[in-house]
Design a protein around this nucleic acid. Structure first.
Length: 417
DNA sequence: TCTGGGGTCCTAGGACCC
DNA sequence: TCTGGGGTCCTAGGACCC
């Protein structure tokens, strides 16, 4: 058996921790660049605010109902998430952090009554972190995902759903549309619909071999998992990424080359930082630039850049990205977004140059180590490349950002006694 | 419901080569 | 100029996730 614990309206709940005056009130959190709604408190949901609703469309409604609005504050959410995960580690020796707000727990070998175990997880997280969660318990990851959904949506569950017998999971599967299954998106659901598969139960009963021919390889595994046979193990160590992207929309449309070059310099060094974290070097980089697809004369170009030798040096990668973006840039457009992807990764141990060019110097590696150490200790952005520019006018919009209560001394909450 | 973020992986199809 | 095969590299975009 395993459990999936998922924070309720994660970002909105994080904001409420340090703003108890907002408990019981509608709260929404916006995506990067204040684009659209990515988290809603239950009171906000009750107002009919849909998930992923563009902010500009519903702003009047939010104002009318005095909804508390927040820009995404990832330093805060990351820190709260860390506290949640640390607390959960007390409930299982083997855990997988699946995303910022979800964790799988291996319950193998525990002698527990699952329903009360799930409730204990909930009350502990509320007591220690003030984070409301849903708990799904089942024999496979895919079923635990379904159970978690039920825990949140069916009031009688009181936040915990245990699917430990075929009777129980089939009861649920018959009442859930197939697109609620983990790994079945909008497109696949439509194709399954054409094959007469409407509910999760239909999918669980389908012939995996036949279905695989119509869809993809993963579907066989999903069907097994829906029938209680675990096919996906817990991944305590996240597998190494095959590619690493950093892409952002600009806070305002950009027409000049220089600020775009500054932005991609930042994206390149961010991606390089992740690359070093995974102990890899990169041999080729993908760089792209485009205007808004919602405006006329949509312009979009990308290019693959070969590195002179496998590297993890932010300075080299930022320089290459700047050069590439100059090639892609054409005057006369209003650019909305650019990005950098490290796409050909090699383990550091294999990072050798060819006969005619030397590999990355030892010194460059040491400089990067020092850069990372300083930024880890004093906070990201303490040391940065001059190529990124100092003022960064193109940075994303964050008009409603809360203080980073737990990660900046200056933002420490004050208590009056 | 065409969806104004970001990340990762995958695949179709074109260009070019032998 | 058209036709046939097979491979690699690259770009664009789809699909799914949170």
């Amino acid at each position: 058996m395993l459990a999936l614990v998922d924070c309720n309206s994660c970002y909105a709940s994080c904001e409420q921790i340090f703003r108890p005056d907002l408990r019981g009130r509608p709260v929404v959190v916006l995506s990067n660049n204040d684009g659209f709604v990515v988290a809603r408190s239950s009171e906000a949901k009750a107002l009919g605010i849909a998930d992923l609703e563009p902010f500009f469309k519903i702003e009047p409604l939010l104002r009318r109902h005095k909804v508390a609005i927040f820009s995404s504050n990832y330093p805060l959410y990351g820190d709260i998430s860390h506290r949640v995960m640390e607390t959960l580690k007390g409930f299982s020796p083997e855990v997988e952090v699946y995303s910022i707000d979800e964790m799988f727990l291996n319950l193998q070998g525990l002698q527990e009554e699952w329903l009360s175990y799930g409730q204990r997880i909930r009350t502990t997280l509320w007591r220690d972190v003030r984070m409301p969660v849903g708990v799904g318990i089942a024999p496979s990851k895919t079923l635990a995902k379904l159970a978690n959904r039920a825990a949140k949506n069916i009031a009688q569950c009181h936040g915990v759903c245990v699917l430990d017998t075929p009777y129980r999971w089939q009861w649920l599967q018959k009442r859930m549309p197939v697109d609620k299954v983990w790994g079945v998106g909008r497109r696949l659901a439509k194709r399954l619909g054409h094959l007469g598969i409407e509910t999760v139960y239909d999918l669980a009963r389908a012939n995996p071999k036949i279905l695989r021919r119509h869809t993809n390889i993963h579907i066989e595994r999903t069907i097994e998992e829906l029938n209680g046979t675990p096919c996906l193990g817990l991944e305590e160590q996240p597998p190494a990424k095959k590619q690493i992207y950093c892409t952002r929309s600009f806070g305002e449309k950009l027409t000049e080359l220089q600020p775009i070059q500054q932005a991609v310099s930042l994206y390149a060094s961010r991606a390089a930082e992740k690359l070093r974290g995974q102990g890899c070097l990169v041999a080729a980089m993908h760089v792209f630039l485009h205007t808004s697809p919602h405006e006329p004369n949509y312009y979009s170009r990308s290019v693959l850049v070969q590195c002179p030798y496998p590297t993890d040096d932010s300075r080299l990668l930022a320089g290459l990205a700047k050069g590439a973006i100059a090639e892609l840039y054409r005057p006369g457009h209003r650019y909305m977004k650019a990005g950098v992807g490290l796409v050909e990764l090699v383990p550091r141990s294999l990072g050798q140059g060819d006969l005619f060019s030397l590999g990355q110097s030892k010194r460059a590696g040491e400089v990067m180590q020092t850069l990372d150490r300083v930024n880890r200790h004093f906070g990201r952005g303490t040391l940065f490349l001059g190529a990124e520019g100092v003022h960064k006018h193109w940075k994303m919009r964050q008009a409603y950002r809360s203080p980073s209560y737990t990660t900046r001394w200056a933002a420490l909450p004050m208590v009056q006694i």
